[in-house]
Design a protein around this nucleic acid. Sequence first.
DNA 1: TGTTAGCACTCAATGGCAAGGAGTGCTAAA
DNA 2: TTTAGCACTCCTTGCCATTGAGTGCTAACA
Lengths: 344, 344
Amino acid sequence: MMELNERAQCLLKALTERYIRDGQPVGSRTLARDAGLKLSPATVRNVIADLEELGLVRSPHTSAGRVPTVQGYRLFVDTLLSVKPLEPEVVDEIRQTLDIEGDSHDLVESASNLLSDVTRLAGVVTLPRREHASLQRVEFLPLSNRKVLAILVISDTEVQNCILNTERDYGAAELQQYSNFLNEHFAGKELKSVRATLIAELKETREHLNRMMATAMTMADKVLGEAEKGSDYVLAGQTNLMDCDELCNVNTLRQLFEAFDEKREILGLLDQCVESEGVQIFIGEESGYQMLDECSLVTAPYSVDGKVVGVLGVIGPTRMAYERVIPIVDATARILSAALNPRD
Amino acid sequence: MMELNERAQCLLKALTERYIRDGQPVGSRTLARDAGLKLSPATVRNVIADLEELGLVRSPHTSAGRVPTVQGYRLFVDTLLSVKPLEPEVVDEIRQTLDIEGDSHDLVESASNLLSDVTRLAGVVTLPRREHASLQRVEFLPLSNRKVLAILVISDTEVQNCILNTERDYGAAELQQYSNFLNEHFAGKELKSVRATLIAELKETREHLNRMMATAMTMADKVLGEAEKGSDYVLAGQTNLMDCDELCNVNTLRQLFEAFDEKREILGLLDQCVESEGVQIFIGEESGYQMLDECSLVTAPYSVDGKVVGVLGVIGPTRMAYERVIPIVDATARILSAALNPRD
DNA sequence: TGTTAGCACTCAATGGCAAGGAGTGCTAAA
DNA sequence: TTTAGCACTCCTTGCCATTGAGTGCTAACA
């Protein structure tokens, strides 16, 4: 792609910033005043014509000013944007909001609310993936009516429980044996490998195992299945999107909200962001999902024990205050990571 | 209030039904044809003028047909409506959807989805109140880092757990003593009274109790606090409301969705419905909440062990198919009650 | 007395039309 | 290379006439 000279870059930057501020197509007169380049509107028009040629800006109609295209935003975000460092007060607010008691689900929920409150857009945070989490302990408790309560301790802050329907009642002592057996063999191992081992053993050696072992394994397998089942996310502040005039028509909103409810597509998109190192941005159609055509998504991954386990981000109109949203998302991801990592 | 003669009632009924079907103000010509009363449009106009006098219908503007007012809907719903018995297929669908494994939260979620799917409106179901639930058992498990896992078994299908931050680490044996103590004294008692007793004992006799008892009680109190904390509801199918043309403007929708997110006000309204025996209906402003001015709410309470523990319902535009929604809500409440009641 | 036909009237909705204004593209001069 | 000037485009707004659905009233009718 042809290089833009400095003046053209400066004008694109000024135009984009102005448009993000006002939401109105920017004309040559305004831009000439705005950019601080001591140029006449006519000159500006010439430069802008070039930018239009390159597909960086476009006119909603003949006699209107210009508006950045997706490519324009992309260039702006990648090379023109000066990301201001975040005000310490905001960092403090994030820290305080995420310094709470509770399990990781509570944290994720707080983070999502936080993102939507601070940016006045929609916040989204995936629940941490548990594939690499390891099993700390399993316990079984007898209930009545042929039901058994299984408790899966994954970490100090992460417990999953699950009521199993069994074919008969079990006594406390018997269940204790099962959990002892499982804890001896599997405590400290990754959930994933525990499950794989269990399945293999169940298939291969069912006859050789005594009944107890088999039952224990079936139970454990059921519980692990629960614990591993599909990823999910927490969304907050959808209603903020109803304030954005570019999204403010019922049809656009419906498609968007239906996608939020459906979750599948949004999850697919968020999963893509797990790969990246830092902040990642999808502008408009770049996401490849039609309901996000008018939206941008700014994400950052967060991690536990040095492994990326989830993604958080902000969904808003393409015309969003990137220079503010980006550092917020970045900081929130870091602070959430810190909050999720066991300290002592 | 003055009695309406039969003809007036019949016309109001026809008008309301027609308006619910088409969403267009109903004129005298249409109504004359529709009502099957062999009347001329002119006569119909006379009758309708009386209905308008009584505040049962109104004209959006001079040269338009008539539309029911809130009072009109109220009369329609209370005395004119012929509720069709539900088709067996629908009942079957409800039965099947609610015949699932899982705890009460899963059931409530299914019920909410079900209501929104079947009615194509928004479904709402409160979580069952636990005030009258009784404590079946408490268990404590040691975690590391001065944390203890507390498990509260409320019923065969209802377990609550909670990670407690304590001032020191506890051993398994020690914790076992605490839970034994609590189980001996409180198993089978109502959560509410357990909590009350605990608080009283903690205040009164802290010095007389040995340390262990005190700790156990503090822990149990914390857990019960968690288990009792504020009621909540599960909403489904909000996006269905975006299809209703009477709600189809961004401002109305935003207010509504913000209220859904906020939850407090909606919960207040739903709480009122716990009192009533059967199906209860709020039409438009009757609810007293401004964001529901354009909406109606149809609710029915559901119960466990003969005690009402929650409410479910449907939120939609005032112009909704009451004769269909009412039996659906009614049936769902009954079937949900049945599904929640422990069988054996 | 209740019902009906006739008729003037009201008012939302629609589309055409003109005026106003913001902004462009082009050309020619500095 | 930059700038001023100017014709041109096209959205926006407001106005007006037309259309059509439906009413309210009055007078005739059963």
